[in-house]
Design a protein around this nucleic acid. Structure first.
Lengths: 192, 192
DNA sequence: GAGAGTTTAGACTCGGAGTCCAAGGTCGTG
DNA sequence: CACGACCTTGGACTCCGAGTCTAAACTCTC
């Protein structure tokens, strides 16, 4: 993937809507071209292919998540309080970027098998939360767990599944409504 | 999809390996034919297409999950004890059918958008667990939650994500190793 | 104004999904 | 047994869409 000229990033981000709706394979390059206003040949000039475009979107949303989580982790309070902030931050990113979030969920398996995406997921969520869990064990606000990475993964799964589920056309409800039960569940799960 | 002749089901189940590896779109009908020993024309005689084969696999694994979960729910003990059994049963199904489980995760988005699959997921896991949570609120072994369906979804997400993560070639470790931390997390999350 | 990089239309190749058909097989029923 | 209904399969075919390629135009920078 080539370095993008100014403005291209925003245009390509608009393709998230398509991928969220139909997934990578249900989306045609022509559709991407039409939706973004960037001609097919130009897309191929900058990206290695359709999958590369999707990967770009995933990295963007994961970096966004990473920034939000890092902000929550860096806040004030006990580890437990900051863990709550992390969950809310994650829900906030899902709410702010619903299309990209749903696209990520749609092609989750593909994403999980890409080393690049796996690395970004880890850096954005798993690793910060793991570290927060260990901090909580030290400051006494959280229970000590045997495998903090594993529990961090469980938390990621719980939040992502619940948040995205709330976004489906069927169950569409404001994420604020789900936040209470979800944060309580997660916090209780690791409370001291 | 036509009613399958005896033996066909088992043969087609062998295709799960392919879908787990490459997903729906990375898998060619010819590969499915080769792996199952069922000629392409015959596959098209019984199934409406590639996606229909995948849907068949998903329904099979979800029904398996449904039976395992139902067994755990129907067991003895408090709701809390049975919830622990549900989590272990879920991990057991993932361990017993790793290929189909990974295939389901690979094309999770597609699955989530199919009403048939969504119905099976709900019947196999979400609804039984929701009901168990309410029972636990009555028998005093679990905390009362505002939206039990939502918490059930969160539990599903936590278990599936953790279990499948443990199956990846990278992190491959016996699921028994993850079970302790995971059940503790889930149980504490909803304990009274 | 020359060269390097960018932008684009449009024609092209190629692979794979799904269709179709025809020949043959296997039943169950009279 | 014979007939009709359904099952089974090979192989050829259509069609669509990803990705490639080319050539022409445009836009910088030096």
């Amino acid at each position: 993937m080539r370095r993008l000229p100014p403005g291209m990033r925003e245009k390509v981000l608009a393709a998230a809507e398509l991928f969220a709706e139909a997934g990578l394979d249900g989306t045609k390059m022509e559709d991407v071209a039409a939706a973004t206003g960037v001609p097919k040949a130009t897309l191929y000039y900058y990206f290695d292919g359709k999958e590369d475009i999707l990967a770009f979107l995933f990295v963007e949303i994961l970096d966004e998540l990473g920034r939000a989580v890092a902000g929550a982790v860096a806040g004030d309070g006990t580890a437990a309080e900051r863990l709550r902030a992390v969950v809310l931050a994650h829900l906030g990113v899902i709410e702010a970027f619903p299309a990209a979030s749903r696209a990520l969920q749609f092609d989750l398996g593909r994403a999980a098998r890409s080393p690049v995406i796996a690395r970004h997921t880890d850096a954005a969520f798993v690793e910060p939360v793991r570290s927060l869990l260990e901090e909580g064990a030290r400051d006494g606000s959280l229970r000590r767990v045997d495998h903090p990475r594993l529990v961090a993964t469980a938390i990621l799964g719980a939040v992502a599944t619940t948040g995205l589920n709330a976004l489906t056309p069927r169950a569409r409800r404001p994420l604020a409504r789900v936040a209470d039960d979800l944060t309580t569940f997660v916090l209780a799960g690791v409370a001291a």
